[in-house]
Design a protein around this nucleic acid. Sequence first.
DNA 1: CTGTTAGCGCTTTCAC
DNA 2: GTGAAAGCGCTAACAG
Lengths: 343, 343
Amino acid sequence: MKRHQTTIIDIARELGLSKSTVSRALTGHPHVNPETRQAVLELAEKRDYQRNMLALSLVTSQSHTLGIIVPEFISPFFPRIIIRAQEVAAKAGYNVIVSQSNESYETEVANAKVMLANRVDGVLVSVTKETRNFDHFKVFQRKGIPIVFFNRVCEEMDVPKVVVDDYEGAFKAVEHLIRSGKGRIAHLAGPNSLLISRKRLQGYLDALRKHKLPIIEELIIPYDLTQEKAKIYVKHLLELPEPPDALFAINDPTAFEAISVIKAKGLRIPEDIAVVGFSNDYASALIEPGLTTVAQPMQEIGESAVQLLLEQMERDVSDWKAITRVLKTELIIRGSSQRKTDE
Amino acid sequence: MKRHQTTIIDIARELGLSKSTVSRALTGHPHVNPETRQAVLELAEKRDYQRNMLALSLVTSQSHTLGIIVPEFISPFFPRIIIRAQEVAAKAGYNVIVSQSNESYETEVANAKVMLANRVDGVLVSVTKETRNFDHFKVFQRKGIPIVFFNRVCEEMDVPKVVVDDYEGAFKAVEHLIRSGKGRIAHLAGPNSLLISRKRLQGYLDALRKHKLPIIEELIIPYDLTQEKAKIYVKHLLELPEPPDALFAINDPTAFEAISVIKAKGLRIPEDIAVVGFSNDYASALIEPGLTTVAQPMQEIGESAVQLLLEQMERDVSDWKAITRVLKTELIIRGSSQRKTDE
DNA sequence: CTGTTAGCGCTTTCAC
DNA sequence: GTGAAAGCGCTAACAG
């Protein structure tokens, strides 16, 4: 239990130097005798010396650590973003500590506290579907720790954000369905608390309006993003007296559930009912039929988010900017919305 | 840039107390006047006080942080394990810092150093496919920091490990193919450096032997786990004068690639060629046909690994145990190996 | 070029 | 019940 790791003091003692000199030699300070430095470096290597970042952080009050808080980890969406974020952060000399809230507000609050307690230099956040109160994030602002939201953002905070054009993405998706000859298009929507849900819903509605299609209330179902509910609602839609001939799902996992329910019912996709998702998850190309979906640039999201965060960190608090970066989506058309022609 | 977070000194000053008393009040020390404690707690709350873990770690030389190093983050396999590991660790009061090596030895070494520098209390490791030298992990042992390997383990280190019965899993999978009437079974194997590759290969070979089937060298291809190579080798197999009638893939992503190549060639699965994977990734139920695969208990892997680590951490270095926990796999039979009967 | 001193925020004896 | 002092490992002036 009580272990001792090599410190600069150990090295100093062994070499008959002061710890300052050792510190200087180790950090590459200019005014150090080359021979002294050499000796220090060699002994450090030999003793597996690793600079204690905790002590360093304490004195510099910079932890060189960024926090990332995401709502979930199951779908490949957030992991993809995190990988890229981590890469960019590492290049800038920052470690990353990741925590997933499991879509729970309580957990999110706890995670935020952990980040605070560990003195992260900045945080990247995508909120849970339950989050309605943002006090736990406002603390960061008050303390002068930059925060950047991505994907699922907090509307009431005036801080940098990275989002995709959800409205346009949804619009394109629905318009594509309409052009494919579909007229009764259902929308399995996300919870109203999330801005992405509302934006995508808006895109859906406007696409219908533009093409003079009626907006049918019973075909629009906001839900809680759980697998079970997805199944139930899709079944419900299919059993309607006048079932939809297309479904625009809030995200790919929802679309996958839908496809499996539809297949189980023996209906043909896309002939009987077309399906479109959102995100272009890994599995959307694997599933049969391939899922037509609105691709999000996950790498770019991760990259932009870290960049905005780093920029913010360099600025003085008084000089913070609340840029919102909106990235483009791309409609990927696959078999779930278009009868196969080739292949 | 220079920000100041509330410290116990701030609170002490404001309340006219000493920092010791504030510390005691905050940490729930018994000998504190209830009123004093009350006052301290209230002010702490009001000032958004968060105990500085870095300072705490420095004095207790315990960071309350566990490190997890995984080779990749793309397939859902490791994320699933990490989620569970994080949950268990959190329950025991530990934070988790995760880093992915991107299958690069260099990155893995760098990540190990970061963990060391951040004074993690213990590490969970699954190595990259490139890792042949384990010095960067042996350092942990020397420093008295417990290390537990999972999935992709280091054979030459005598430390706790969590693995699944790869041999048996592979054996069952191949035997299933044989019983389905397949006789020319190919194996797209993993790199020889990984124990899991060798164990699964062994299971494959022994299943063939048991059923008196010939072992055909040209049907056994170890590869580097990249998508591109998977494609190339599957094509190669299919173009053999005598192509295989079944394929046992080292893991699910490989099987997915195989299925897509096979379909593109217009062959039927499983009639012309059956496919079996390993892990039971998320997408294996989605793909068409469903992928027969050897399910790994990912949750349990994460859970066991953290448990072994925590146990080790409680023990004195002299008392470390090198338990290897072997978890069971389960063969999940789907359409890729068995003609559909129902549905 | 190198040593001395102070201090980052916190816990922990040891006194009173 | 509370305060004073020491120390965790490190860096950063300030002297030499």
